[in-house]
Design a protein around this nucleic acid. Structure first.
Length: 449
RNA sequence: GUGGUCGUAGCUCAAUUGGUUAGAGCAUUGGAUUGUGGCUCCAAAGGUUGAGGGUUCGAUUCCCUUCGACCACCCCA
């Protein structure tokens, strides 16, 4: 290329981001944690194509879906789209392979999804979801298990101050039916959902003016949404309110059951809180619904939402395939952790750096590195012939805990120098077959005993 | 998708109601320091003021367009 060739400006699309090492390390750590927790409950991994037929992803289709989904014609003129969540692909997947999978089918799926939305802090056009779902189980034990997974996951990530808010669509739908608002359920629930944001007066206002329901009905709804107290108190009150409507009564007993089973292993207030104002996931949820909020940053929204849907795959098969599961918003959670200064402290991928004193000793450096790796340590050989001071500076900046120094003197004496970066102390170990002395010291220093 | 605020070095910010050569701190690179990082000192590099057009003798400053970030709505992880 000549100097006059116009340069291409390096840039990324709106709502898309690069992940340098310092962003990627905590990201991978989080993914690893999610994977570990999911597996510990017996969920198995799957993956599906990022690109699918448009009509598979669009489902019933709506203005909103159309607006959010990236879609285009491929080279064979097929109408295709990028997945915008992991639940629709799951529905297609279980419908397609139901017979081979066997029920119950428990899967987790950690993958990127795309939405053509206007971006904001913690809200991107490309982001990662960490879903887990149980398909083919009607028992509420799976609902309770979902709560336990979320609770375990949040703790494993390092959060103590969070709330899992629990609700049930049957309660909401039953009561709306009772109030004669069934036909306007979506609007009413949407208004209710804004309670924490715009307050009771705001919700009432929206119910009256936007949704157009009667003042009596609005007050009924508001009174319901503002129920508060202990889970037990709320259940009692709810039961009274729901009396006479079969659907709502079922919902209350479901809530009761989920709360009781979760409590059996200690997941209860204040972590698990009944909240009648939680109404999201309007599309397909039919029973239990949960949302997870951070006590220290509620404004970022739910970082983990889920629930039960009776007709997961109804668009793809006549078989009845109920599902229950939740989705961790990895990128949103990371954005929250960043804002709260909770980004997990990560060091370099490797444990020790082997400095290069003399290019003639590179075979020895490679051998030491190989031996360390066999012993379970990560080891990087500094491959560039730079001044030793600069190599130490590199080690320091990258967060290396230890630096190995071997020069002519060490070769002569068959010793290895190891400098512990935190305190600057340097120790000498015999350079023997299995590096056992150095290995046990390193293990101790790195808390790997 | 609708409405709004904002874009100056990699980052955080300066630059007199439009005035000539756009500065500083941190970060980066090199040196002081040819077997040892952080601290200190010296130096260098880094900018078509997001981009394009317009008004003007003159634009970082004013106007339009566009790209991007953020905020509210919509929706949602």
């Amino acid at each position: 290329m000549s100097d006059t060739t116009p340069l291409i400006e390096p840039r990324v699309l709106k709502g898309f981001r690069d992940y340098p090492p310092e962003k990627m390390m905590p990201r991978e750590a989080l993914i690893e944690t999610a994977r570990r927790v999911y597996r510990s409950y017996g969920f198995a991994p799957i993956d599906t194509p990022a690109l699918e037929y448009y009509d598979v992803l669009a489902g019933k289709g709506s203005e909103e879906t159309d607006r959010q989904m990236y879609q285009f014609r491929d080279h064979g003129d097929r109408h295709v789209g990028l997945r915008f969540d992991l639940t629709v692909p799951l529905a297609r997947f279980v419908a397609q392979y139901a017979h081979e999978l066997g029920m119950p089918f428990k899967r987790y799926h950690i993958a990127t999804v795309w939405r053509g939305e206007k971006n904001q802090a913690g809200r991107y056009r490309e982001f990662m979801q960490c879903d887990f779902d149980t398909v083919g189980v009607r028992s509420l034990a799976s609902d309770a298990e979902m709560v336990l997974v979320v609770s375990d996951l949040m703790r494993a990530i390092g959060f103590e101050r969070f709330q899992i808010r629990l609700n049930n669509r049957k309660v909401l739908n039953g009561l709306l039916e009772k109030f004669g608002l069934r036909d306007r359920a979506a609007h009413v629930l949407r208004a209710v959902d804004k309670l924490p944001k715009i307050g009771a007066a705001g919700v009432r206002d929206e119910l009256l003016n936007v949704t157009g329901i009667s003042p009596t009905a609005a007050d009924n709804v508001l009174q319901l949404a503002q129920l508060h107290g202990s889970n037990e108190q709320m259940l009692t009150q709810l039961a009274a309110t729901c009396r006479g409507n079969e659907l709502a009564e079922t919902g209350v007993s479901e809530l009761q059951q989920v709360i009781a089973w979760s409590a059996a292993v200690g997941v209860q207030e204040p972590i698990l809180q009944l909240d009648v104002a939680i109404a999201r996931g309007l599309d397909y949820y039919t029973g239990t619904i949960i949302e997870t909020f951070l006590d220290d940053l509620p404004s970022i929204g739910s970082v983990c939402s889920g629930g039960r849907y009776d007709q997961l795959a109804e668009l793809f098969t006549r078989e009845q395939l109920p599902g229950v599961g939740a989705s961790l918003g990895l990128d949103r959670l990371l954005a929250a952790m960043e804002e709260l200064g909770l980004a997990p402290a990560t060091h370099t991928p490797a444990d020790v750096l082997i400095a290069q004193f003399d290019s003639g000793l590179i075979p020895q450096y490679f051998q030491i590195a190989r031996d360390l790796r066999r012993l379970g340590f990560g080891a990087e050989v500094f491959t560039d012939a730079r001044k030793i001071g600069q190599q130490f500076k590199y080690a320091d900046r990258r967060g290396y805990r230890a630096v190995i120094v071997v020069g002519a003197d060490e070769v002569a004496s068959r010793k290895i120098q190891v400098k512990w970066m935190a305190d600057g102390k340097q120790l000498e170990f015999p350079w023997d077959e299995n590096l056992s002395e150095m290995a046990s010291w390193l293990r101790k220093q790195l808390n790997r005993e």
